[in-house]
Design a protein around this nucleic acid. Structure first.
Lengths: 196, 196
DNA sequence: TAAAAAAAATACCAATTGGTATGTAATATG
DNA sequence: CATATTACATACCAATTGGTATTTTTTTTA
């Protein structure tokens, strides 16, 4: 790996940490420079401006993690309710990338940026849409294999699952404890049984 | 109503609008002054600083609305599943205070402020806790009246309901359409039937 | 190894931020 | 009606913000 690439990646990773813990707007470029020990010249050599860096963080750090924990599991050849429970369980309790006290990075950014920054929202929307689509595909396959009831509306179910995830992340952040995750998972399991 | 009180309330209401639509940090005091046509002297006569105003908005504007839509319905003498569905339905579709494209003000503030402002988080946490408690009380009464299964864990259910609400607010904000609210409500109804 | 291009360092800047100091008008009170 | 207090107005400020211009160092390439 080239030295320049390392610099760039360092900026992205450390900036992600700051933004994830403090929020995008409260993280100043000077904060990032102080943490990375990179100079302003180097920073602006790699990124046109702060927002471009923010988008790069989503694309190059958040997205891969998202693919791993939220998309890949859905493509397995197992029965959907097992898959969905496993996905939720691992996303909440096995993902060391995410910390309960800081919530979900993508959800945080959505809330913070949606009202005034369309670039961020566009990228985040793509992630959400992909997740929804894959959830639906997973459910549809289940229907075809008689593992899921035929009369469910896959879009409705996908939306219900997504909102549950985002919400519990937010609640976890508020109370700062994984206890709520575990409570949530129990009810999620009960809900999934409805689909069979 | 005294003139000074009107000034104060104007600031709170207009500032709420700005913060709800743009976020707390992106709303500057000068923004608020421009919108309200109040001078800086007047502003700082009524509020010690920006954060004190923020807290006042939660206590004096958000909280009453919250009590009306999220607490009061729960105290009715009806069967819980009807109450809960009605509460969710009205909160999402009947509350003109809240707009789909801007999400839930309390949830927005939680996400934005939690990592770095303990004052805000404390007040918001109180709201969340009260909601949870009242949800549990509502369910407990249902159990005693044989309207709700005895074997449910009221805390778990309360947590599941809360996260669903927050999540769907976030999703609504992302896609900017009440369609997801309606989809969500359908599945919420199905989930509530599980409790009977 | 010299020139060119890439990468990084340094110094600077205008705009905005939340907040203060001080002055003045309006209102209440005795 | 005099005085005190409340309510608001104006002008100012230090700190921070994202960003730029310029120079220097490092690396690549011919």
């Amino acid at each position: 790996m080239k030295k320049a690439e390392i610099t760039r990646l360092t900026i992205l990773e450390q900036a992600f940490d700051l933004i994830y813990t403090k929020g995008y707007q409260t993280t100043s470029i000077d904060d990032i420079l102080a943490k990375t020990k990179v100079t302003k010249g180097a920073f602006y050599y790699h990124f046109k401006n702060k927002d471009e860096m923010g988008i790069a963080i989503i694309q190059e750090l958040i997205k891969p993690n998202f693919e791993h924990y939220f998309i890949k599991p859905l493509l397995q050849e197992k029965d959907p309710s097992t898959i969905l429970y496993q996905m939720m369980h691992d996303a909440l309790l096995k993902n060391e990338f995410l910390k309960v006290e800081y919530g979900c990075p993508a959800s945080n950014l959505t809330t913070e940026m949606a009202p005034w920054n369309t670039n961020f929202t566009k990228v985040l929307n793509e992630l959400a849409l992909k997740w929804k689509m894959c959830l639906e595909i997973c459910l549809q396959k289940g229907i075809e294999q008689n593992l899921i009831r035929k009369d469910i509306d896959t879009e409705q179910v996908a939306i219900f699952i997504m909102s549950g995830y985002w919400g519990i992340r937010n609640l976890g952040k508020l109370v700062n404890s994984t206890k709520v995750y575990k409570d949530y998972l129990k009810q999620f399991e009960a809900y999934l049984n409805l689909l069979k």
